[in-house]
């Protein structure tokens, strides 16, 4: 189910402003890769180029290549809608559909794909909620609105919604930044369970989190306000946190900068 992501020479723009410059990196399948770096270094922007969500902002565009196994996401004729059905995303703030029930939230992606069979939907909803470690808490109130859940439960609901369509890759944009420590721990445990099946990339501001959940870490930085973000280095998380190759990385993770 999981695919490798191979980025080469990628620039991302908002209008005339270059937010990310010349990023080349590889994300291994069935592993967790963390993107860390100071605010504004373009890590979220970069993440959003992996499912072509960057371009939904007016004026935003991308140049360069993002290969998903052997397909370039930015080739002519590639349908962004199809890309997003393959590369799932979880956002910073939990964003369940407010007018939908828990069940309908999880089933939303399948219904968009035209699945109407009640039995199939039931199975997928149960399986996805179990994968998101939420089944036990909500199985007796699937008809309740998704917005009735706590923040941490809502975020796991969003993860269930994302995995329900069996994506190849799961992008997580600071998924715990709006959550309390207990909910954060639940999500981190979940990420460990999910990495057997999916390629996971997580953007985080929390370096302990990156150290706890990721196999590999990429460090980004900016030279200053108005300058584009750049990749400094990417490597095994244990290596990065104990013996970073670059001085900038060491300064950042030891708290001397950023």
């Amino acid at each position: 189910m999981a695919k490798r992501i191979d980025v080469s020479g990628l620039d991302a723009f908002y209008g005339h402003f270059k937010a990310v410059e010349d990023v080349s990196l590889t994300v291994e399948p069935r592993s967790v890769t963390a993107f860390i770096g100071p605010s504004g270094c373009g890590k979220s922007t970069l993440l959003r180029t992996f499912n072509r969500m960057h371009e939904v902002i007016p004026g935003a565009r991308v140049s360069g290549k993002v290969m998903l196994d052997d397909e370039n996401l930015y080739d002519d004729g590639v349908d962004p809608v199809a890309v997003r059905r393959t590369v799932g995303m979880v956002f910073q703030r939990p964003n369940p559909f407010p007018t939908m029930s828990i069940y309908d939230n999880v089933a939303a992606g399948l219904r968009l794909n035209g699945v109407k069979n009640k039995k199939v939907l039931d199975e997928v909803v149960e399986r996805s909620l179990k994968r998101a470690n939420l089944w036990g808490e909500v199985h007796d109130r699937l008809g309740k609105p998704g917005s009735s859940l706590s923040g941490g439960q809502q975020q796991r609901l969003c993860i269930a919604r994302a995995v329900a369509v069996e994506p190849q890759v799961l992008l997580m944009d600071e998924p715990c930044s709006a959550l309390d420590p207990i909910s954060t721990l639940a999500i981190e445990d979940l990420i460990q369970d999910l990495k057997d099946r999916y390629t996971i990339i997580i953007v985080t501001h929390n370096m302990q989190q990156a150290a706890r959940v990721s196999d590999r870490t990429a460090f980004f930085t900016i030279a200053g306000a108005g300058k584009p973000g750049r990749l400094v280095e990417i490597g095994d998380t244990a290596e990065m946190f104990s013996r970073p190759a670059e001085k900038a990385t060491e300064d950042y993770i030891t708290g001397r900068f950023g």
Binding site: V81, R84, R85, G88, N95, F97, N113
Partner: peptide, 25 residues
């Protein structure tokens, strides 16, 4: 914006995004 992006990220087309996120709201 979050509601609209939620639909888009699930692979909703423009019309589906309107149906799933915009109209109910």
């Amino acid at each position: 914006r979050a509601n609209i992006e939620a639909a888009l990220a699930l692979g909703a087309t423009r019309w589906e995004t309107i149906r799933v996120s915009v109209l109910p709201f």
